[in-house]
């Protein structure tokens, strides 16, 4: 059952990614990307990472894709410009080459043995000891990574003030 779901979601992810890169209309590509984010979130659920799945949907499918769509719509690309893809030939070439390199790398990692690294600390047993994925993330976030967590709020405050200063129409 799990394997079947994995193949369904994985297949949808691959098809949607293909639609994303081959799509002519940027809005379609953006919507394909939303689909990719959703099925990846589903894959996270299959791996027992519910928190990550929720964060994936909220942050990527929610916030970041809305931003993308805003940018696309603000740019208001004309249909003629969209069809003129010949100048992207250079990019296309490198895109394909780099994708192949990435695929080779992933294949090497999957085969194992080439890149050696330490074993992670958070095995399924440790995570279930916390009571689940969400609980484990919370426990780590509020103990080991308490300071980075709090610091992020300061950074966001600063970024907010900065954004207002740079864009507000009239400053007093």
């Amino acid at each position: 059952m799990e394997l079947l779901l994995f193949y369904i979601f994985g297949g949808v992810a691959v098809l949607a990614s293909l639609g994303l890169v081959t799509g002519k209309n940027p809005v379609h590509s953006a919507l394909f990307m939303v689909v990719v984010f959703f099925v990846i979130a589903a894959l996270f659920v299959l791996l027992g990472a519910e928190f990550l799945a929720a964060a994936q949907i909220l942050v990527y499918a929610g916030a970041i894709m809305v931003l993308f769509l805003f940018v696309i719509m603000l740019l208001r690309l004309q249909p003629e410009e969209l069809r003129n893809t010949s100048r992207h030939a250079f990019q296309k070439f490198f895109g394909i080459v780099l994708s192949l390199v990435l695929m080779a790398q992933i294949a090497l990692i999957v085969r194992g043995g080439f890149f050696k690294g330490a074993k992670g600390n958070y095995t399924p047993e440790v995570v279930s000891g916390f009571g689940g994925n969400t609980e484990a993330v919370a426990a780590v976030l509020f103990t080991d990574y308490l300071f980075p967590f709090e610091l992020t709020s300061l950074i966001l405050l600063m970024a907010m003030v900065g954004a207002v200063v740079l864009t507000k129409k009239e400053l007093k």
């Binding site: 009571g131 509020f142 103990t143």
Partner: peptide, 9 residues
């Protein structure tokens, strides 16, 4: 589930 123990930094 055990409550998170936060040691005072």
């Amino acid at each position: 589930m055990t409550p998170i123990q936060i040691t005072y930094p």
